[in-house]
């Protein structure tokens, strides 16, 4: 498998891979998001308690799940970069970071908006919202650290270490916050405690989850291409590419 993956450590090959994957990712993402959202928002049955307001889960849940997964993906990329000394892996990590941060923000925003009808307040120190907020802080830390370095290669490595420190902390933070929450608030009804979700509601959710994942991948490839081009500006292959574009 490594033999197959190894050529993509070279930035030029990674760039070409992004270019090839990109249209498929965009088409897939748009199709899934369109189907999932229309299905979820218009055709899935109403919740018997929450009425139509539950439909926000079609955005909230995928973004919340993927905000965590993106962070883990960043840590994996950082580890790959560290072990095999791939510059491209760090670039991919940095490309993912703001996308993940935006996902976290969407999850927080939709969570807060959902909280208004549910709890009567825009912000409640609910365990899941709190750990999402801390996750957002972790993202901000990684992005800020990378941004402060003038030497982007060094910055990528530094941000990678921070992402790894963060990923060890994510489960600890998650459980500590959950435990803190039960201690201080008694049993708040958690939004996802419903033992099961009706299949008619679940299917659009899964389609949207896939759509969000493809969307993140698509944006990441665009950002990665950008990062490679900016960082390798003086390399001959980029110069050749630019000259080809001018003609």
């Amino acid at each position: 498998m490594w033999k197959w993956l190894h050529p993509y450590a070279k930035t030029e090959n990674a760039y070409q891979l992004c270019l090839t994957l990109q249209p498929w990712l965009w088409v897939g993402a748009l199709a899934c998001l369109l189907i999932g959202s229309v299905w979820g928002l218009a055709f899935a049955p109403q919740d018997y308690q929450q009425g139509d307001s539950f439909r926000i889960i079609y955005i909230h849940v995928p973004s919340a799940i993927l905000s965590m997964s993106t962070y883990v993906a960043m840590a994996v990329a950082a580890l790959v970069g560290m072990v095999w000394q791939w510059r491209t892996a760090y670039m991919a990590m940095i490309a993912m970071a703001p996308v993940g941060a935006v996902m976290t923000f969407i999850a927080l925003f939709t969570g807060a908006a959902w909280g208004k009808p549910m709890w009567g307040a825009w912000w409640v120190w609910d365990a899941r919202l709190t750990s999402e907020l801390i996750l957002l802080f972790l993202y901000i830390g990684v992005i800020a650290l990378y941004g402060t370095f003038e030497d982007k290669q060094q910055g990528g490595k530094a941000a990678g270490i921070m992402a790894l420190v963060g990923v060890i902390n994510v489960p600890i933070i998650h459980y500590s916050v959950e435990w803190w929450n039960t201690l201080h608030q008694g049993a708040t009804i958690s939004k996802f405690d419903n033992p099961s979700i009706a299949p008619e509601m679940l299917w659009p959710l899964l389609v949207n989850l896939l759509g969000f994942a493809l969307f993140i991948a698509a944006v990441t490839t665009v950002r990665l291409r950008n990062e490679i081009i900016v960082r390798e500006m003086h390399r001959p292959w980029v110069v050749k590419l630019a000259q080809k574009g001018e003609k």
Partner: peptide, 8 residues
């Protein structure tokens, strides 16, 4: 050696 994305 590549420093600040410049080949030294």
């Amino acid at each position: 050696c590549i420093k600040r994305d410049r080949v030294l």
